[in-house]
């Protein structure tokens, strides 16, 4: 699948904290070993108990649009061909304290709505500079 935004647009630098989220192809969320709290984005310290050891828990990847913004002004030359596009904030059904930013790949920007049910899908991207293979979580509408 080609990328939703232009191929040359910004990519995350993969590091020890975000590696599972951006490369596994699963919606892996950080979970504290000590208190089992799930938090996103991953942090160095658990916000609940200050634990510093973590495992990952997989979300089923279903949720609803909690908020969204529709971008019209291209804030960078690489986004000139992409506008207008929507960015959605998805609240997960199985971890309601977690919200994840992404794009809704199959819904035009003027049809995105709050509470719209969505499920995770994936973009596979290669970072030509680092050679890193990325699996970026994205969203598609759940049609009823």
């Amino acid at each position: 699948m080609s990328r939703f935004l232009p191929e040359a647009w910004m990519l995350p630098i993969v590091d020890d904290l975000n590696r599972e989220f951006f490369t596994s192809g699963k919606l892996l969320l950080q979970q504290c070993v000590d208190c089992q709290t799930v938090q996103h984005p991953p942090e160095e310290v658990c916000h609940q108990c200050q634990g510093m050891e973590f495992v990952h828990v997989e979300s089923a990847g279903r949720g609803a649009v909690y908020s969204f913004a529709v971008m019209h002004y291209p804030v960078h030359a690489e986004l000139q061909s992409a506008v207008p596009y929507a960015v959605v904030l998805v609240q997960l059904d199985d971890h309601p304290s977690v919200r994840i930013v992404g794009n809704c790949l199959d819904v035009p920007p003027d049809e995105v709505e709050i509470d719209m049910p969505v499920q995770v899908t994936w973009e596979t991207l290669a970072d030509a500079e680092t050679g890193e293979q990325l699996r970026m979580p994205q969203w598609q509408a759940i049609r009823r």
Binding site: W9, M10, N18, F22, A69, V87, V101, G102
Partner: peptide, 12 residues
């Protein structure tokens, strides 16, 4: 933290 927003086109 911006790794979770900017690649999706949310920057400013």
């Amino acid at each position: 933290a911006r790794a979770y927003t900017s690649p999706y086109g949310l920057v400013t």
